[in-house]
Computed example of a mutant assay.
Amino acid sequence: MHGQITGVVYAIYYPILAAIGVPVNLVAIVVLSRGRCGLSKCITRYLVSMAVTDLLVVLTAVIFNRIIGIYFPVSFMSLTPACTLSTVIIYAATESSVWLTVAFTFDRYIAICSQKLKTNYCTEKIAAVVIGTVCLLSCFKSIPSYFIYEPLYIMNNVPWLCNIKSSFYTSLAWTAYDWFARVLNPGLPFLLILLFNALTVRHILAASRSRRRLRANSSGENQSDPEMLNRRKSIVLLFAISGSFILLWMTYVVDFLYVKITNESYFGGSNFNDPRFIRQESGNMLQLLSCCTNTCIYAVTQRKFREELRNAAKYLGNLIVNVVK
C-alpha cells in the first residue's frame, strides 16, 4: 500500500512540475529579454541564460525522461541509444544550470565587494563569454556519461532501456569519473556559493557600518541612502536565488555522500517501497523543482518584473478578447 502511494505521488508530481516549469521559464525568458525590469544588461544575461537552461532541464529530465517513462513505458525514448543520449543532454543542461548559478553569484560578489574589478568584469560582454564557456564545458564533461549505460535487455536485436554497467562500480576509471562529476556538480558549486555569499555578507556588514557612521556625522541619520537601497535589492535577489539552490539540492547532496560513505550502489529498480528509491527520488524531485523557482523569486523580489508580468497579462487578455470578438 505504501509503495502504491509513493508511486502515485511520483506519477502526479512530474506532470504538475512540467505544467508549472515550462510556462514560468518561458515567461521569465520573454520578460527578462525585453530589458525593462530595471536590471543591468549583465544581470539580465545571467538570469535569461539560467531560465533557458532550467527550461531545457524541465523538457529533458521531467518530460522526456520522467513523464514519458511513467506514462509511455514503451516508446522511442525507451530505446537504449535514445535514453543514453537523453541522459547526456540532461546532465549537460543540469550542469549548465548549476554553474550559471555559481557564475551569477560570483558576478554579484564582484559587483558588491570589488569596485575596481566591477568595471571590467561585470559587463554584458564578459557575461556572454562566461555563459558560453560554462555551457560548452558542461557539454564536454557530460559526454563520458553516454558510455556508462548498456541495454537492460535486447529484443529482436533492438536494445531497450538503460542499465548502468557493472564495470561502473568496479572500474577505477569510472569511480574516479563519478567522484569528479559529483564534486563538480553539485559539491563544488555548493561550497563556492556558500563562500561567495559569506564574503558578500561580511563586506556588506562592514560597508553598512561605515556608511552609517559617515552619513550620521555628515548629514544626519534619517536621510535615505540610495546606494544602500540599490545594493539591498541586488542582495535580496542574490541570496534568494542561491539560497533556493542550496535548500533544494541539499537532499541530493546528502544522498550522494551517503552512497559513497556506505559503498551502496545507486538504485536502479522500480520498487517504490525500497528506502534507496525513496531517498534517491526525493533528492531528484527537489533538485528538479529548483528549475521552477527562479521566476517566483523574481516576482517576489523585483517590483519592475511584477509590473512587466501584469503588462504581459493585460496584453494577452486583450488579445484573447479581440480574437473571441
Rank of each mutant, 00 (worst) to 15 (best):
residue 128 A to R: 03
residue 129 V to R: 15
residue 129 V to D: 06
residue 130 V to W: 02
residue 130 V to A: 12
residue 135 C to S: 07
residue 136 L to H: 05
residue 136 L to C: 13
residue 137 L to C: 13
residue 137 L to D: 02
residue 137 L to F: 15
residue 138 S to V: 05
residue 138 S to F: 00
residue 139 C to I: 13
residue 140 F to A: 13
residue 140 F to Q: 05
residue 141 K to S: 02
residue 143 I to L: 15
residue 143 I to G: 09
residue 143 I to Y: 10
residue 144 P to F: 04
residue 144 P to L: 05
residue 144 P to A: 07
residue 145 S to M: 14
residue 145 S to H: 12
residue 146 Y to M: 12
residue 147 F to R: 01
residue 147 F to I: 03
residue 148 I to E: 01
residue 149 Y to H: 06
residue 151 P to L: 11
residue 152 L to K: 14
residue 157 N to Q: 15
residue 157 N to H: 14
residue 157 N to S: 15
residue 158 V to G: 05
residue 158 V to A: 08
residue 159 P to I: 09
residue 159 P to T: 07
residue 162 C to A: 15
residue 162 C to N: 07
residue 163 N to Q: 15
residue 164 I to D: 00
residue 167 S to N: 08
residue 168 F to Y: 06
residue 168 F to W: 09
residue 169 Y to D: 02
residue 169 Y to V: 05
residue 169 Y to A: 10
residue 169 Y to M: 07
residue 170 T to W: 06
residue 171 S to W: 04
residue 172 L to H: 10
residue 172 L to M: 12
residue 173 A to V: 11
residue 173 A to W: 12
residue 174 W to T: 02
residue 176 A to R: 08
residue 176 A to H: 07
residue 177 Y to Q: 06
residue 179 W to K: 12
residue 179 W to H: 14
residue 180 F to N: 03
residue 180 F to D: 00
residue 181 A to R: 04
residue 181 A to I: 11
residue 181 A to K: 10
residue 182 R to K: 14
residue 182 R to F: 05
residue 182 R to V: 06
residue 183 V to K: 04
residue 184 L to S: 05
residue 185 N to P: 00
residue 186 P to Q: 08
residue 186 P to G: 13
residue 186 P to D: 04
residue 188 L to W: 00
residue 188 L to V: 11
residue 192 L to N: 02
residue 193 I to S: 00
residue 194 L to Y: 06
residue 195 L to S: 06
residue 196 F to L: 01
residue 196 F to P: 00
residue 197 N to D: 08
residue 199 L to N: 03
residue 200 T to A: 04
residue 200 T to S: 11
residue 201 V to R: 14
residue 204 I to C: 09
residue 205 L to W: 03
residue 207 A to K: 00
residue 209 R to T: 12
residue 209 R to A: 15
residue 210 S to R: 13
residue 211 R to S: 08
residue 214 L to A: 14
residue 214 L to T: 09
residue 214 L to E: 12
residue 215 R to P: 00
residue 216 A to C: 12
residue 218 S to G: 05
residue 220 G to H: 07
residue 220 G to P: 03
residue 222 N to A: 12
residue 223 Q to T: 14
residue 223 Q to F: 13
residue 225 D to F: 04
residue 226 P to G: 07
residue 227 E to F: 10
residue 228 M to G: 08
residue 231 R to W: 04
residue 232 R to G: 03
residue 234 S to Y: 02
residue 234 S to V: 06
residue 234 S to E: 11
residue 236 V to I: 13
residue 236 V to C: 03
residue 237 L to T: 04
residue 237 L to R: 01
residue 237 L to H: 02
